[in-house]
Design a protein around this nucleic acid. Structure first.
Lengths: 63, 63
DNA sequence: GGTCCGTGTCAAGCGTGCTTGACGTCGAGT
DNA sequence: ACTCGACGTCAAGCACGCTTGACACGGACC
């Protein structure tokens, strides 16, 4: 599972902290997802997709 | 988070056991997801969506 | 030099996702 | 009455998702 969260966040001009606040999670969670430390939970993945107006499948890719 | 897994599975004429095998998870996992015991992980949610040729968002709904 | 901000990472702790193995119940078929 | 498949559920155990708090580093700006 890799993802395009970092690219989307940077393109939106947001810091990890700002995205974390928008998603109501910690900055470390955003960082961990971006750096591939672990996959988000399903509800968080859906929240991320909604935030960037994409589908889950467009952002998260099974290897 | 509720979901349409049970409806889709029944419509496809599959038992929980058969769906579990198709997804390479245990029968209890399929049952737990259908009965709302917990949400699937992101990779499993994507696998379920693919199996039924739907998007994740079409199957899993945030309350 | 000193002070930010943004990022990467660590540790400890808690709840959840998933496993195997097991048991009870119900309906269908014999 | 018996068996069998399908389903719901429990328990114990392990790995992961997420938290708070902390530390280190680089770049920008004074």
């Amino acid at each position: 599972m890799d993802n395009d969260v970092k690219e989307l966040r940077v393109a939106a001009g947001l810091s990890q902290r700002e995205l974390a606040e928008a998603l109501s999670v910690s900055r470390q969670t955003v960082n961990s997802i971006e750096t591939g430390r672990y996959d988000p939970s399903l509800p968080l993945a859906i929240a991320i997709a909604r935030h960037f107006a994409r589908t889950v499948e467009e952002i998260f890719h099974v290897d």
